[in-house]
């Protein structure tokens, strides 16, 4: 009986394959495309273990093991670059998430539906402007003759205009502000959606019990969106090292180089501009491995704490 069943199943499979030949052919196309553009570059990681010379090529360059990684970690510049990338990644992650959650909760408390819609629509406009435009505007606003200096001097908080881009101590916070300005409204969309999904009878019951606004936010809204917060925290934690290119590249200058350079900028500088492909690849591998480790560790921690998780 069982064996007959098996044979029958196999026959159906062959029939199925024939029936699905269009899907299979198309899939094959996608696999080839994906293999070339997404998986083949991984083979390039070999370069990090070689002294890659374009002339000698991939297979005939001298194999040097971990030499490039040693060079990387003996370079004080790279240690600074790691620090900058991590610091800005964490600052941005925390500030943008907190800003979005606070904004979503406060916007949800606005009773006028029309007003809510107008504010929300305006709030995610900056998300669609390019970083080129945003950093250009920021440059204008913070320049010596810009509005920020003008206001600070007018209200006598500063004696004379200050060039904010000339001091390393401001740079990380300028980057964080730029991210908050650009992404708060956009990131809030998802929190607003999950606030809307909270059972309204909870609020009604709480109101009857005399819970004030803060109590309702603290005991109903925040616990209600906690799963969303955790999932987004997990997803974003893997991107902590990725969030360090455009803004820093566009806002950085010689005076703040020591705090503005990130891993991606380092790769661009050494790998592309200086042509040391092996060193650039090694730095890139370091970034990928750390990113994946962070996301796995964060996921494991969430699992242990009995919270939502990605995998």
């Amino acid at each position: 009986m069982a064996s007959i069943g098996k044979v029958k199943k196999e026959r159906i499979n062959w029939k199925e394959i024939k029936k699905q030949k269009v899907l299979l052919l198309l899939s094959a196309g996608y696999v080839i495309y994906g293999f070339i553009f997404c998986y083949l570059p991984l083979a390039g990681w070999l370069m990090a273990f070689e002294n890659y010379k374009p002339k000698a090529g991939f297979f005939h360059s001298e194999f040097i093991g971990l030499g490039k990684f040693r060079q990387l970690f003996l370079d004080d510049g790279f240690i600074h670059v790691i620090r900058n990338t991590l610091a800005m990644g964490v600052i941005n992650l925390v500030t943008t998430m907190v800003a979005a959650i606070v904004f979503a909760i406060l916007l949800n408390e606005v009773k006028s539906q029309g007003g809510k819609k107008v504010v929300q629509t305006i709030s995610y406009l900056p998300h669609f402007l390019s970083w080129i435009i945003v950093t250009g505007i920021l440059h204008d606003a913070l320049s010596g003759t810009g509005i920020v200096n003008d206001l600070l001097v007018r209200f006598q908080l500063l004696k004379e205009p200050l060039n904010f881009f000339a001091y390393p101590k401001y740079f990380w916070w300028i980057v964080a502000f730029a991210n908050v300005w650009k992404e708060t409204g956009w990131n809030a969309i998802i929190y607003l959606a999950s606030i809307t999904a909270i059972d309204t009878s909870l609020y009604e019951a709480a109101a009857i019990d005399g819970a004030g606004r803060w109590a309702r936010i603290k005991y109903i809204t925040l616990p209600g969106i906690k799963p969303t917060i955790i999932i987004l925290l997990l997803m974003n934690s893997g991107n902590v090292l990725n969030a360090g290119f455009e803004v820093q590249y566009l806002l950085g200058n010689g005076l703040v180089q020591s705090v503005s350079q990130t891993i991606d900028i380092y790769v661009l500088k050494w790998g592309i501009s200086q042509g040391d492909y092996s060193l650039g690849t090694a730095a890139g591998i370091f970034k990928s491995v750390v990113s994946i480790s962070i996301i796995l560790i964060a996921n494991e921690m969430a699992k242990r704490a009995g919270e939502e998780r990605l995998f």
Partner: peptide, 29 residues
């Protein structure tokens, strides 16, 4: 739902969201 490799093909693409070769290998490719 009837496609036999739907799960494998999904996974093949989802992995690309997390793993990539990086700037230099992509540039050379």
């Amino acid at each position: 739902k009837r496609f036999i490799f739907k799960r494998q093909l999904s996974l093949f693409w989802v992995i690309t969201m997390y793993v990539n070769g990086g700037m230099i290998p992509v540039f050379l490719l």
